[in-house]
Simulated assay, not measured.
Amino acid sequence: MLLEIRKLLQDRGRVSLMDLSLHFGRDTDAMRGMVAHWVGKGVVRQIDPEACACAGCGKCAAALGAEVYEWIGPAPKDRPA
């Protein structure tokens, strides 16, 4: 599942913890632990939800207290950076 999480983050760029939880059908604590693996590797970081809302205002993610993660590692080898 760690590789699937990595691919989703690479494909989307930014993903909330809730989206990860819903996508993989796991509780948020389990997903947080799996994302922590990639954070520890230095290819994912948690970002301020106010900086990344869907419409750019940041109000919806911030109001929900969302945890948002962003892929910062290298681009996948099968596509250009």
Rank of each mutant, 00 (worst) to 15 (best):
M1R: 12
M1Y: 13
L2S: 08
L2Q: 13
L3C: 09
L3E: 14
E4R: 14
E4Y: 09
L8D: 08
L9R: 03
L9Y: 04
L9I: 06
Q10M: 13
Q10Y: 10
D11P: 04
R12M: 05
G13H: 02
R14D: 05
V15E: 02
V15F: 01
V15T: 02
L17P: 05
M18Q: 14
S21I: 07
L22Q: 15
L22E: 14
H23E: 06
F24V: 05
D27V: 10
T28C: 08
D29I: 15
A30F: 06
M31V: 15
M31F: 06
M34S: 10
V35I: 11
A36G: 08
A36L: 12
H37Y: 10
W38T: 11
V39K: 07
V39Y: 06
V39R: 13
G40S: 13
K41C: 07
V43P: 05
V44M: 03
Q46A: 12
D48Y: 14
D48K: 15
P49Q: 12
E50G: 00
A51F: 04
A51E: 08
A51K: 03
C54K: 02
A55P: 10
G56M: 09
G56A: 10
G58V: 01
G58I: 01
G58N: 02
G58P: 02
C60K: 01
C60E: 06
A61R: 00
A61H: 01
A62V: 03
A62D: 06
A62H: 04
A63T: 01
A63P: 02
A63Q: 02
A63N: 02
L64G: 07
L64M: 14
L64H: 11
G65I: 10
G65V: 13
A66W: 00
A66Q: 00
V68R: 00
Y69M: 05
W71P: 01
I72S: 05
I72Y: 05
G73H: 01
P74V: 11
A75E: 12
A75I: 11
P76E: 09
P76Y: 04
D78M: 06
D78H: 03
R79L: 15
